[in-house]
Simulated assay, not measured.
Amino acid sequence: METTGVTKITVETVVKAPVEKVWNFWSQPEHIKNWCAASDDWHAPKAENDLKVGGTFSTRMEAKDGSFGFDFGGVYDQVKTNELIEYTMGDGRKVVVNFTSNGNETKVVETFDAENTHPIEMQRGGWQAILDNFKKYTEAN
């Protein structure tokens, strides 16, 4: 089923690490818990990931002071190891993540359907901040 009129937002980064490492840090729960936050006052205390077509994932994202939190999750639609992840979020929105290897660097490009509650720039900023945190964590470990 094709959705029309959906705004797509793209964020990207280049991680100074081989694609195999980037893929593992992106997909393994023990790593996800260390980078899946948009700011230092948030964290991800719990992550589960079954990275296969039809598999599910769930990451608990919370303010460190306990004031707010939510579960971010969905179902995988397509998985090509070290290349592509496509999934549908719990609210039906789609996400595509491409991994492009260039030796010791990997370009990560994430495109997602915008939601209608928050401004586009706020959504882009939040997703980019998480991606930047992923880059920082992966390059440091």
Results as ranks from 00 to 15, higher is better:
residue 1 M to H: 09
residue 2 E to I: 13
residue 2 E to H: 11
residue 4 T to G: 08
residue 5 G to T: 05
residue 5 G to F: 01
residue 5 G to H: 05
residue 7 T to R: 11
residue 7 T to M: 10
residue 9 I to P: 00
residue 9 I to G: 00
residue 11 V to D: 02
residue 11 V to L: 02
residue 11 V to C: 05
residue 13 T to P: 03
residue 14 V to I: 14
residue 16 K to D: 15
residue 17 A to W: 09
residue 17 A to Y: 09
residue 19 V to S: 09
residue 20 E to L: 00
residue 20 E to K: 02
residue 24 N to P: 00
residue 24 N to F: 04
residue 25 F to V: 14
residue 26 W to H: 13
residue 28 Q to G: 07
residue 29 P to R: 12
residue 29 P to Y: 07
residue 32 I to E: 05
residue 34 N to Y: 04
residue 37 A to V: 08
residue 37 A to L: 08
residue 37 A to W: 12
residue 38 A to Y: 12
residue 38 A to C: 11
residue 39 S to G: 10
residue 39 S to Q: 05
residue 40 D to F: 04
residue 44 A to K: 07
residue 45 P to G: 12
residue 47 A to P: 06
residue 47 A to E: 06
residue 48 E to V: 04
residue 49 N to V: 06
residue 50 D to S: 15
residue 50 D to Q: 15
residue 53 V to R: 11
residue 53 V to D: 09
residue 55 G to W: 02
residue 55 G to M: 06
residue 56 T to E: 15
residue 56 T to S: 14
residue 56 T to I: 10
residue 57 F to A: 01
residue 57 F to G: 01
residue 57 F to Q: 08
residue 58 S to G: 12
residue 58 S to A: 13
residue 59 T to F: 15
residue 60 R to D: 15
residue 62 E to Y: 00
residue 63 A to F: 02
residue 64 K to I: 13
residue 64 K to Q: 13
residue 65 D to F: 13
residue 66 G to S: 10
residue 67 S to W: 09
residue 67 S to I: 07
residue 68 F to W: 11
residue 68 F to Q: 05
residue 70 F to P: 08
residue 70 F to Y: 15
residue 71 D to I: 14
residue 71 D to L: 15
residue 72 F to I: 11
residue 74 G to L: 14
residue 74 G to E: 13
residue 78 Q to E: 15
residue 79 V to T: 03
residue 79 V to M: 05
residue 79 V to I: 08
residue 80 K to Q: 14
residue 80 K to M: 11
residue 80 K to E: 15
residue 80 K to F: 05
residue 81 T to W: 00
residue 81 T to H: 01
residue 81 T to S: 07
residue 82 N to H: 13
residue 82 N to Q: 10
residue 83 E to R: 00
residue 85 I to V: 07
residue 85 I to T: 06
residue 86 E to K: 01
residue 87 Y to R: 02
residue 88 T to Q: 15
residue 89 M to W: 03
residue 89 M to D: 01
residue 91 D to C: 03
residue 95 V to T: 15
residue 98 N to E: 11
residue 99 F to S: 03
residue 99 F to A: 02
residue 101 S to W: 03
residue 103 G to W: 06
residue 104 N to R: 07
residue 104 N to P: 01
residue 104 N to H: 07
residue 105 E to R: 13
residue 105 E to Q: 12
residue 106 T to W: 05
residue 106 T to F: 04
residue 106 T to N: 05
residue 108 V to H: 07
residue 109 V to H: 03
residue 110 E to Q: 11
residue 110 E to C: 05
residue 111 T to A: 09
residue 111 T to R: 06
residue 111 T to E: 14
residue 113 D to R: 05
residue 116 N to T: 13
residue 117 T to P: 00
residue 118 H to K: 10
residue 119 P to E: 12
residue 120 I to D: 09
residue 120 I to K: 11
residue 121 E to N: 04
residue 121 E to H: 04
residue 121 E to S: 10
residue 122 M to P: 02
residue 122 M to T: 09
residue 124 R to E: 08
residue 125 G to C: 11
residue 126 G to C: 09
residue 126 G to K: 11
residue 126 G to N: 08
residue 127 W to I: 13
residue 128 Q to T: 03
residue 128 Q to V: 00
residue 130 I to S: 02
residue 130 I to Y: 01
residue 130 I to V: 02
residue 132 D to F: 06
residue 136 K to M: 03
residue 138 T to P: 02
residue 141 N to F: 01
